[in-house]
Design a protein around this nucleic acid. Structure first.
Lengths: 165, 165
DNA sequence: CTTGAAAAATCGTTGAT
DNA sequence: ATCAACGATTTTTCAAG
């Protein structure tokens, strides 16, 4: 189980295309990358097996699902012991409002990304699901004006190896 | 362009399945949801056109791509004017290390989720790409121990309408 | 929403560069 | 290791009930 994997320009190109649309057919993928469809299939299968590709997720519009308000909650869990942390994480993960949960260094311990219908539901969430818990020592709420999904997690090009080394 | 859309239990079920694997075939989808494949296609097409489904993204393993360290950067941009904010956002978005960018309420202004190879690269990123910028007034770095992708952004069940209303 | 059938894509195989 | 072509199987898509 190697920590990191060698990816050649073809792999990177494939990943970059699939990150825009994970349902691209191997035929289209081949056309865009410039190799044969069977090669694409080979590469993708390998990337999948090597663990580089973990899966493919739907991107949904929270507003269209009646969750027009998003917020970030900084949560201090004290005492910061495993027997308190583990149930906290589990509970947060199963909240339908939770989008993402981070365990962090620093005094804040956790950051929770949530999506709710409006301020009222946010208040309810904070009071009933967070500060009501004994291990939640402190909580800070920040609203999200806007969010951007960034780069493809990949070097912009093949590595700019035109004449490199 | 209605803000929110009515979703019946079938739609919700479909979304829930596709969020686990956006490449589920319509055949499997139909089997899991309990309707005909063609109906699934219908529903998904409609969900796509109505904007509920924005797309499908690959989930990649940052560690496998040589980005074993993730961090959250709180950034204060001052003065917080549009002519400084817009270029800042654009620059951050095109950094290959950036995963996600939030514009927030509160004194922090921005939160940047980054993935880097290690502490050295993180330091370089912070110094060269953030604090080197004149509009970056303050920056705080928090390392990410662990992250969880949470719920499907959907109510756990069809709404628990068994006997409702 | 369903059935049923046509069109398209997947995925394994082959042999060759 | 890649390609190209073939073909069986599966999936997607459309038409009609």
């Amino acid at each position: 189980m190697p920590e990191s994997v060698v990816l050649d320009p073809v792999d990177l190109h494939i990943l970059r295309v699939l990150q825009n649309d994970a349902r691209t057919t191997y035929r289209d993928l081949a056309a865009q990358v410039g190799v044969a469809p069977s090669t694409c299939l080979d590469r993708v299968t390998r990337l999948r097996r090597s663990g580089v590709i973990l899966g493919q997720q739907l991107r949904l519009d929270p507003a269209k699902l009646g969750r027009g308000l998003q917020a970030l909650l900084s949560v201090q869990v004290r005492p910061h012991r495993r027997d308190l942390v583990v149930p906290f994480v589990e509970r947060v993960r199963e909240l339908p409002e939770s989008l993402s949960l981070f365990h962090l260094t620093g005094p804040e311990d956790f950051l929770v990304h949530v999506a709710v219908a409006g301020p009222g539901e946010l208040q309810r969430l904070v009071l009933d699901e967070f500060t009501a818990r004994r291990e939640v020592a402190r909580l800070e709420t920040r609203l999200i004006f806007q969010q951007w999904q960034c780069g493809p997690l990949l070097p912009p090009e093949a590595g700019g190896d035109t004449g490199g080394a």
